[in-house]
């Protein structure tokens, strides 16, 4: 009969209307500034530079290799390599970025920089409230603003941070083993040379 469906529909909307006052499950709205839902672990928004220890500039892992700058699809990263060197976590002398700027207005949050970085140095942050009142300077983020501690990384991406820490620890162990082996080999070589010298005295000429 004509109008039957309309009556059914009206009943349905009335049920929705009244139900929204009774049960909170119906209302899926998250009232954002006051309420927040926890972010999923794989959330990514904008890159940051990881540092170890307390001093951001001293502990920064970045060695200014510029791979991320070259790989960045929208070319939003700008790096200037330093003239001098500083020791990294393996106590090797490395370059560091004298300038490391990312243009927030250009970045498309793809995370390719974090993927290609061989030094576990650039990672994706979950912070998304990045608006500023200054659309030129405010959107150009420099290395002091980008530097965030490894503790922060562990907090926002626990799984990835653990993997990253493990990779770095393995690197360190390898480097240490190599250094140890080098020292031993050197000592051995020195000892051998000494022994050789002892066994075979230099012929007098």
């Amino acid at each position: 009969m004509l109008g039957e469906g309309i009556i059914k529909g009206m009943a349905e909307t009335a049920r929705n209307f009244l139900g929204s006052y009774v049960s909170d499950e119906r209302l899926t709205t998250v009232q954002y500034p006051e309420e927040r839902i926890p972010q999923i672990e794989n959330a990514r928004q904008f890159p940051f530079l990881v540092f170890d220890g307390d001093d951001p500039m001293k502990g920064m892992r970045c060695v200014a290799c510029q791979i991320c700058e070259k790989e960045c699809p929208p070319k939003c990263i700008y790096i200037v390599k330093s003239k001098d060197k500083k020791p990294d976590y393996k106590n090797q002398q490395q370059f560091y970025p004298a300038t490391f700027d990312i243009d927030l207005s250009v970045c498309m949050s793809c995370g390719i920089c974090a993927e290609v970085c061989p030094f576990e140095s650039i990672k994706m942050d979950t912070e998304f409230e990045l608006s500023t009142t200054d659309r030129f300077g405010g959107l150009l983020v420099n290395k002091h603003q980008l530097a965030k501690s490894n503790g922060h990384y562990r907090k926002i991406h626990p799984g990835d941070a653990a993997a990253s820490d493990a990779a770095l620890a393995a690197e360190l162990a390898k480097a240490q083993a190599k250094a140890k082996a080098d020292v031993e080999a050197k000592a051995k070589a020195a000892a051998e040379a000494k022994a050789k010298a002892a066994v075979q005295p230099t012929p007098a000429t």
Partner: peptide
């Protein structure tokens, strides 16, 4: 407000 409630919004 009424339309919102009908659509389960605030």
């Amino acid at each position: 407000k009424g339309l919102g409630r009908i659509q389960n919004r605030y």
